[in-house]
Amino acid sequence: MCGRLTLTHPTEALAALFSATPGNDLPQVPNYNLCPTQDVPVVTSDAGRRLRAMRWGLVPSWYKTPTDGPLIINARSDTVAEKPAFREAIRQRRCILLASGFYEWSAGEGRERLPWHITRADGAPLALGALWTPSGDMATVAVVTLGAGPNLIPIHDREPLVLDPADWPLWLGEAGHGAARLMQVTAPGVLVSHRVDKAVNSNRASGPELIEPI
């Protein structure tokens, strides 16, 4: 599961990396504790790539308001083509959610939750496979997740779909059909992780100290 993000790469760098036209309402950088319901930077492709802001937490078409049902921040790869909330979006509205890292929690003693910060080993931004849907005057997004691979299985049993640059055109629908084959766990060594302070367990925490190793 992917439930909290960090965003420290400059907006201009993200736009250049994807050759995308940036919007005027992109999330403020840096953010060391980006939470569901906040805006996240997303790349879409429709007559050109756009870097735009979307609310993290997909709102299905039958919701009358964003709070009419459970908060949907992730979409499981094994059921994404079948679930009514996702099946149209996974075919027609795939996108890439950009982050610098994400937090995950492992089990400690008793009910203790131990936070970890996960990034790419090469320091590049994370390109997370996602899907989106329009909802009134806003767009909302959910991250596709899979069973954890060798990078994260010691920490948690789920991981987000991390796309390599060569896969971006296919996921965005620019390179034809067959995006389903991209829904595979991240190769060993691509991601690195380190323990961080439990201060990040609060969604109100902020500041660069949240990602400092302990």
Score class of each variant (00 low, 15 high):
H156W: 02
A127S: 14
L191R: 13
I96C: 06
Q28A: 11
L17M: 13
R111W: 04
M183E: 05
N201E: 06
K64Q: 13
D157W: 10
I73T: 14
A99H: 07
A75R: 00
S193R: 13
L17P: 01
T145Q: 09
E209A: 15
T6K: 13
M54D: 04
Y103T: 10
R181F: 01
K64T: 06
G48P: 07
G48H: 04
S19I: 01
A179T: 00
L114S: 07
S106F: 08
P36K: 08
Y63E: 03
D157M: 03
G129E: 03
A15Y: 01
W116D: 05
V40Q: 02
I118K: 03
L58A: 10
P10H: 03
A124F: 00
K64V: 00
M1R: 14
W168E: 07
P22T: 11
E209N: 14
T186I: 02
L126N: 05
E104I: 02
A107D: 15
L182C: 05
I90A: 13
D197P: 00
A179I: 00
V80Y: 06
F102S: 08
R4N: 09
G149S: 07
E212H: 11
P36F: 11
V43C: 10
A16R: 15
P70I: 12
L146N: 06
K198S: 15
P213G: 12
I155P: 03
M138R: 12
L26P: 03
Q184W: 01
D25V: 01
L14H: 04
L34Q: 09
A107V: 15
L98V: 12
A139S: 14
T6S: 15
A99I: 04
V200K: 10
P188N: 05
R55P: 09
N74V: 11
L170T: 09
N31H: 11
G207D: 09
W116A: 12
A142V: 01
G173E: 05
G189W: 09
L14V: 02
L126Q: 07
A199K: 14
L172N: 08
N151T: 00
M183N: 07
R50P: 00
N24R: 14
N201Y: 04
L170Y: 12
L5K: 04
S193M: 08
R195N: 09
L14I: 09
S77K: 11
A130K: 01
N74I: 04
A179K: 06
R49V: 09
D164M: 13
L131H: 06
C35S: 14
L172R: 02
H156S: 01
P36V: 10
V29D: 03
A127G: 10
D122Y: 02
T8M: 11
L152T: 04
A121S: 15
G110Q: 11
G178R: 05
T6E: 10
P27W: 04
A179F: 14
L210V: 04
H117G: 06
L114P: 03
L182T: 07
E109S: 14
S100L: 10
Q184L: 12
E159A: 05
P66Q: 02
I118E: 05
P36A: 04
P66I: 00
D39H: 06
S135M: 03
R120H: 07
W62S: 09
L128N: 02
M138V: 13
T67F: 12
N24L: 13
R4H: 05
